[in-house]
Design a protein around this nucleic acid. Structure first.
Lengths: 241, 241
DNA sequence: GCTTGTGAAACGTTTCACAGCA
DNA sequence: TGCTGTGAAACGTTTCACAAGC
């Protein structure tokens, strides 16, 4: 599934040398894997910034994550010219740029459906906010859980499912996180879409379908363990060239 | 990172028509994305089995997950000939085959490091066992948490970090799941490797390095939300050709 | 009819290699 | 010298299209 994004002109003078006609914004194709790596570059850069490092080369950034220097440069070049020949990339500048590209230079409101163990863990996780995500509500259909507070003093109250739609609308929630059992995941997803959610991250161990205008991500913990099991099982039989 | 696995001969008569010389097992290359999809096929098939369905075509299996029929057939064909022309795939048979391929036709012992919210959620998750994974121990360095029981009656006791190595060895633990803060993830990974763990799944929001003999998976919740944010942000500018 | 398995073609992604710049 | 940005080549993956089988 290739991703088409509207290309932005490189820094500095826009190339209008062709003359009088305004050049239409290039339509460029960004490989989905490149966008995934952008998140990892950002994470690494934030760590470097904490360590006080001011610049980094594509070689060092790649090495830290197991990619080649060419891969790093190519990935970044899809979005513009951020580097400085002879110097590398300025850490602070690149962080700002990548946040702008990913859209996390502002705070996204998210809600969690399902206040089981995983739902509680997601609501309690302190790392989301500095990444640009704020969990503003959590829902559960168990009356014994509704009304309870999750996430300590600054936490949120568990709401009943019938509050879902109005919460999305009134609070401007854009992201829905599904931490419900597999058998209700599709139904909840439908409700979220109906309520006007803009994207869904599904932790339920089942595949769900949404209109293809709604970006959908999914994380299945068992699937990740299975992939490990496969790689361990076959590594004894493996000949990595 | 291409994956090389030792190809298995198709069902029935091994092709030894070339004559007297024993044909060496073909070394075949399986795309990593194909292996990931195998897990999804398995999940879908298990759901179909629960619904009583006996056979399924590559077309229907693909449709359920958003893939083409050719993709499904190709993926499965990397590992052998499991289908029946005119019929499709027998659900029960294919489940057995895929489990055999992934290595989850037996139970893998896993441990969790970190008994915070996420660690507790992982230990408590009831779905792992029927997928072939058993969490046999959980560790935490907080003395207030050590000794506590997690996961109810059948749960496990939280152990201190100094019990890590002997637990891996004595109980034959093969998989390590990291649910610790980023700043200790690498250190814990090193200890797990030192103790003889065979694979690691990292939930800490940082990249870690392990010897390349040790398969490593990683799940960063913020990264998944970032990818959603990007897709939402760009979808207004998107022309999915 | 409907279905699989599979070479070959099409397509997508990564790596190479080097011009250009600090 | 060291580094980026980028076309072109190499490589990997998916789709096509069809022979063969139920």
């Amino acid at each position: 599934m290739p991703l088409y994004i509207q290309g932005m002109p490189p820094d500095g003078q826009p190339d209008n040398s062709a003359g009088l006609v305004q050049r239409p914004a290039r339509l460029e194709v960004v490989p989905a894997p490149a966008v995934r790596r952008l998140s990892l570059y950002l994470r690494e850069l934030e760590s470097l910034l904490g360590g006080g490092q001011e610049t980094i080369s594509s070689k060092d950034l790649g090495n830290a994550l197991g990619y080649t220097d060419a891969q790093v440069r190519k990935d970044l070049a899809y979005f513009g010219q951020f580097g400085h020949p002879g110097i590398g990339y300025r850490v602070k500048e690149l962080i700002t740029r990548i946040r702008g590209i990913l859209g996390t230079d502002r705070v996204w409101k998210a809600l969690v459906v399902g206040a089981g163990n995983l739902g509680q863990a997601l609501v309690s996780y302190r790392g989301f906010l500095k990444k640009g995500f704020e969990i503003v509500a959590v829902f559960d259909n168990d009356p014994k859980v509704v009304g309870r507070r999750i996430g300590g003093a600054t936490g949120v109250e568990v709401l009943p499912p019938d509050r879902l739609a109005d919460t999305v609308r009134e609070r401007g929630v854009e992201l829905g996180i599904l931490a419900v059992p597999a058998d209700v995941a599709q139904r909840v997803a439908d409700q979220l879409v109906e309520a006007g959610i803009k994207g869904i991250l599904n932790f339920a161990p089942t595949s769900i379908t949404v209109p293809d205008t709604i970006p959908l991500g999914s994380v299945d913990l068992s699937v990740h363990l299975e992939q490990l099991a496969f790689r361990i099982s076959t590594s004894s039989v493996t000949t990595p060239q």
